[in-house]
Every structure is written in structure tokens, then in C-alpha cells.
Design a protein around this nucleic acid. Structure first.
Length: 265
DNA sequence: ACTGGCGCCTGTTTGC
DNA sequence: TGCAAACAGGCGCCAG
């Protein structure tokens, strides 16, 4: 579930509470969480005696700089990942990667389902380039957002989930943006006009801003304006009252309002 | 070059 | 009531 708004919350959390605290050690409880061949012992070697000095975010990735030279942690949260800064002695259950500060506190990187990954990267930009991530969904201007759609033809839902098209949207916020704009998730890109796509861009901005404003808790969104609180509740369209419909699109469950989002011909 | 679909993971929910 | 199957979903990989 962690998508762009969650990454915003986690980055802020680290910027507020994890920087400038000397690191005593790093603990890797489950090496599966380490990505790109990172060896468990290497994390401690790299971090020991240093401090975290800066943070960055691109799409669903959070980056944390260690030391003064090139060298960042890249955090990706998969489906159940999250990061907390905890006082001594309160390590949560699924904290598979831990960074312990000399003052006794720690950074806990949790992920019960083990889809999350911790990597070491040179710089955020180099990582974004290597992973072929598209522009960040919240920082991209409308022209940068529109550009990749010129060469796409599949279902819009699948394109919004493709991180090389635009980085940061996942299943639930893609559904919400399509709902806001009245676009059926199975509509193909060629079936959408430039006006449709510009409207979708605006909807994405509104949805992400609203989600960030409630600390990425989808159930805390205004239930009169957004579909998400109803996805986990009564499953009715807040604007028309009809039951929400579901359909598998691009391999994932899409929720939509059948009266507001007409299927493509 | 681009697309949809499957499998990885395991805690939680659903169904018989 | 209990247990198994289904589900959640980001993403790497694969076949078409």
C-alpha cells in the first residue's frame, strides 16, 4: 500500500528525527530485505560512526544520505513496508533492518510481507536513471506528465501504475484519480484526449495533496468527495450512491463507480 | 517497444 | 468452530 503519500510521510519522519545522530551499528534481521546484492555485514560497515545527513524522495522511494560524500540509502516499501524512529527497547516485530544510534534510539525498517527493499546507491538521481523511473508524480509539470503517453496504447490504469511512465502512483491512488476524473480504468490511452489527460493530471495532484494532508491515511479522506474511504467501508459511490464495482485491470483489482466511469466501447 | 499476467511473500479475511 | 483458500499489492520477470 505504501505509495507516494506514504513516502512523503516517511521522508519527513526521517528528516525530523533521524538526522545528525551518530550511528552505532546496523542490524539485518532478514537479508531478503536487502536489494541489489547488498551483503548484510556491509550495511553496518558503511554506517558505523557516521550520521544521516539528508533526505530525498522520488515516487515511492525514500533516500537517506549518510556522511558527506556520495552515498545514500534507498528505501522502498513494497506493500507492507514502513519506517519508524523508535526509542530504545521498543523495536517493533517486523523490523528486519535496524539502524541503531549511539544515543540508544533506532530507525526501524519494517515489512511483514518482505516485499520492501533497502539498497545502497551513489545518488538518488543515478538510481532513478538506472531504474528508469519516470518523473515524480507530484513534482512533474503537466508537459512532463503528458510526454510518455504519446507512445502508449494500453489501459490507463496500467499506465498509471507503470513507474517508468510516472513515479509514485499505486493501486489505490490510481483508482482514486480515475474516479475523480470519471475515467473507467480499462479505457486505453488512445481513447483519451489531451484534455482528458490534462484533467487526469490535475486530479492526480488534488488526490495526492489531499492524501498527504491526512498523513497518507486513505480512510481519513473526506468521505463526501473521495472514493477511498468507501473502498474499505460501505463500498458505495459517495457522489451517486450506487455500489462500487470491481474489475481486474492490468493484473490488479480496480474499484470504480459504474455510473461515473463508463466502460470503453 | 510495449503489454498483460504470474509469482514472490505472509498476515488477515473470507468461506465452507 | 476450525481450517484452508482467497486476498492484499509493488514489482521483477516473462512470453506474446
Amino acid at each position: 500500500m505504501p505509495e507516494l503519500p506514504d513516502a512523503v510521510v516517511y521522508r519527513r519522519r526521517l528528516a525530523d528525527a533521524a538526522l545528525d545522530r551518530p550511528i552505532a551499528d546496523a542490524t539485518v534481521v532478514d537479508p531478503l530485505i536487502l536489494g541489489d546484492g547488498l551483503e548484510p555485514h556491509r550495511l553496518g560497515e558503511v554506517l558505523r560512526g557516521r550520521t544521516l545527513t539528508d533526505t530525498h524522495r522520488h515516487g515511492k522511494h525514500v533516500f537517506v544520505r549518510y556522511g558527506e560524500e556520495t552515498g545514500w540509502l534507498a528505501l522502498h516499501f513494497g506493500m507492507t513496508g514502513r519506517v519508524q524512529v523508535v526509542p530504545d527497547g521498543t523495536m517493533p516485530e517486523y523490523a528486519y533492518v535496524q539502524v541503531h544510534f549511539e544515543d540508544g534510539g533506532a530507525l526501524a525498517f519494517e515489512c511483514p510481507r518482505k516485499f520492501a527493499r533497502v539498497r545502497l546507491v551513489d545518488t538518488p538521481d543515478a538510481f532513478v536513471e538506472a531504474k528508469d523511473l519516470g518523473p515524480d508524480a507530484r513534482r512533474a509539470d503537466v508537459d512532463a506528465f503528458l510526454a510518455p503517453f504519446a507512445s502508449r496504447r494500453g489501459a490507463i490504469k496500467g499506465r498509471l501504475l507503470d513507474q517508468s511512465v510516472v513515479a509514485g502512483l499505486g493501486n489505490i491512488y490510481a483508482d482514486e484519480a480515475l474516479y475523480q476524473e470519471g475515467i473507467h480504468p480499462r479505457t486505453t490511452v488512445p481513447e483519451l484526449s489531451e484534455t482528458d489527460l490534462r484533467g487526469l493530471y490535475d486530479a492526480i495532484q488534488r488526490v495526492l495533496d489531499a492524501a498527504i494532508a491526512v498523513d497518507a491515511d486513505p480512510e481519513a479522506l473526506d468521505p463526501d468527495r473521495f472514493m477511498l474511504p468507501h473502498r474499505y467501508g460501505d463500498e458505495h459511490c459517495p457522489k451517486t450512491g450506487v455500489p462500487l464495482d470491481t474489475e481486474t485491470v492490468s493484473g490488479r483489482t480496480a474499484y470504480f463507480s459504474p455510473t461515473r466511469q463508463s466502460p470503453p466501447k
